[in-house]
């Protein structure tokens, strides 16, 4: 686990994962619409997708090197 988090992609993934979860939950619990869009929910989901990609790349790199 520690080896994984030496990869910057894992750090970035973890950060956007946490923030993405917060935004998604906020968007669901307290939906606020700006120009008709639930910005927290949409951005939260985008963050989660980006975080998943970053984490997958970090895991792939770790497996490749081990």
């Amino acid at each position: 686990m520690q080896k994984l988090f030496e990869d910057l992609r894992a750090f970035i993934g973890a950060f956007f994962l946490i923030v993405g979860i917060i935004l998604t939950i906020t968007g669901i619990v307290h939906p606020e619409f700006v120009e008709g869009y639930n910005l927290n929910l949409i951005t939260g989901i985008c963050f989660l997708i980006f975080a998943s990609l970053a984490l997958m790349l970090a895991v792939y790199e770790k497996n490749k090197n081990s």
């Binding site: 923030v19 935004l23 906020t26 968007g27 606020e32 910005l39």
Partner: peptide, 9 residues
């Protein structure tokens, strides 16, 4: 423009 949450970002 930003709601609380995205404003933090």
């Amino acid at each position: 423009f930003y709601p609380s949450g995205l404003l933090g970002v």
